[in-house]
Amino acid sequence: MSPRAFRRLETAMPWLVIVGTLLVWELAVDLFGIRQFILPAPTAVYAALVQYHEPILASAFFTLINTLLGFGIGIVVGLLIGIFIGSSRLAYAGLYPVLIGINSIPKAAIVPILVLWMGIGQPPAITTAFLLSFFPIAVNVATGLATTEPELEDVLRSLGATRLDILAKVGIPRSLPYFFASLKVSITLAFVGAVISETLASNDGIGYLMLQAASQFRTPLMFAGVTVIAAMGIATYLVCVFIERRFTGWATRKQTMAAMGGG
């Protein structure tokens, strides 16, 4: 195979896998006569998607808004906490165990408490999305700050730089690749948070739609909901990847060069 054909095949691979999986799925459902409320065929899912596109779109929009709001708060809070614990050893010692503790709580267990405080619907959904998404951001930014070379810090300190100078000139730029990498993880977690909360305590959103569909054994509609969530997740993930490439090209370029044996 020529290198060009190989590269073309490489770009086509994800699509081939998806189409292949759908084909096998469709054939298997036909061949083994699986009933629709157990596992609907892809064509049935598509039909449900078309038939209920209005409620699905409205719910998806609601979920997307909750996710993005929670994600936005998560970015701000995650950045602040990350910079704080990454630049002060005392703050790290005090806050890190607490953060680990908060992160190990299953968020589904928190939703009832949030409902008690905020009622149902949008507020707990946004909060759950935020609670799931801030942690990777905080930890990654803190790690990025901690990887500043001590020699470089010496160079700057011997010039009379303040801690704020070092943070602004070296620490924050150095941690940006870590920050953008964490956005990719966090955005998908924000979706998880929003959908969990909508499933447990909401009258709107994809989570609620799926719960309704499940109670009526409308399995194709449930699968349609899952498909829409997946699509939104991939789309927002790609946006994060794009932003990452745009702002921290220097970090990935260096890796590519190293892999090629240059640099």
Binding site: E149, E151, L152, D154, V155, R157, S158, L159, G160, K169, V170, P173, R174, L176, T248, W250, A251, K254
Partner: peptide, 18 residues
């Protein structure tokens, strides 16, 4: 305390990649 009239260079060039 840290002097402010010093230039320093190390074995590792410690340049900022960005």
């Amino acid at each position: 305390g840290p002097l402010k009239i010093v230039g320093m260079a190390f074995q590792n060039s410690t340049l900022l990649p960005w």
